[in-house]
Write a protein that binds this DNA or RNA. Structure first.
Length: 234
DNA sequence: GCGACAG
DNA sequence: ATCTTGTCGC
């Protein structure tokens, strides 16, 4: 039968999910055709940051919703599930998308105009990193913000803060490498869904606050770990 | 066989 | 990602 990208298919909401890495690769090849890694989300009022933390077999997915203009935290949500898929480089979304979708489903308040994820977007061997997969499932503009490289090549990056270089795959720009702090390790930014590489870089630049990572994903990471440690006391 | 390999 | 103490530096 193979991948099922039809209605209810790729979202893990119809009880369907790949059972093996080989099957997951087939899903990615089918889903990649639906990703729109271009454009600009337009007026952004609300931004979400999300992340997943693990404690043994349990995955804790967290979503934080911010007002873009002020950076104020408007709401948050979380979900806990048994991890359904092992971590395999290139197949991260099959491990993290289900628990993140549940957390998004529980989120109250306005719909986010932009979603930032911890991981790659289309800077991926099949253009289907976590941010691309999640953005497609949510049908929302999404950006991947990764702490290390998975795919793509780039020129040497100047040591200066805020220096950036295109991340390319066979000449095609699939994202940007951005050094957010002088002499610090860079971060890897790539479009997920419904946004282009340049707009993705531009939005991330506006979400920096002096730290290595933009605050939506940085705070989501911190919240997920806090949530996790609070849970181990019961 | 060897290196690379998001979280 | 997670397992884990102290330690170097701003």
């Amino acid at each position: 039968m193979g991948p099922d990208p039809g209605p209810g298919g790729p979202f893990g909401l119809a009880g369907t999910w790949p059972r093996s890495p080989a099957e997951a690769v087939l899903w990615q090849e089918a889903l990649a055709a639906r990703i729109q890694p271009e454009g600009d989300p337009g007026p952004v009022c609300y931004v979400a940051g999300c992340d997943v933390a693990y404690r043994g077999e349990w995955a804790y997915g967290v979503v934080l919703l911010f007002e873009y203009a002020t950076g104020r935290l408007l709401s948050h949500s979380w979900a806990r599930e048994r991890a359904r898929f092992p971590y395999v480089p290139g197949l991260l979304s099959f491990r993290e998308v289900p628990v993140l979708l549940e957390a998004f489903f529980r989120l109250e308040g306005p719909e986010p105009d932009l979603v930032l994820c911890d991981g790659q977007g289309i800077a991926h061997p099949r253009r289907m990193g976590l941010a691309a997969h999640l953005g497609l499932c949510l049908d929302r503009p999404s950006i991947g913000v990764a702490k290390s490289r998975l795919w793509g090549e780039h020129d040497p990056l100047p040591e200066q803060a805020l220096s950036a270089c295109p991340l390319r795959d066979r000449g095609e720009v699939i994202g940007y490498v951005l050094r957010t702090r002088a002499r610090g390790r860079p971060i890897y930014i790539s479009p997920g869904h419904r946004i282009g590489p340049e707009a993705a870089l531009r939005y991330v630049l506006t979400l920096l606050d002096g730290h290595r990572l933009p605050y939506p994903t940085r705070l989501a990471d911190r919240f997920a770990r806090t949530r996790l440690s609070q849970e181990e006391g019961r």
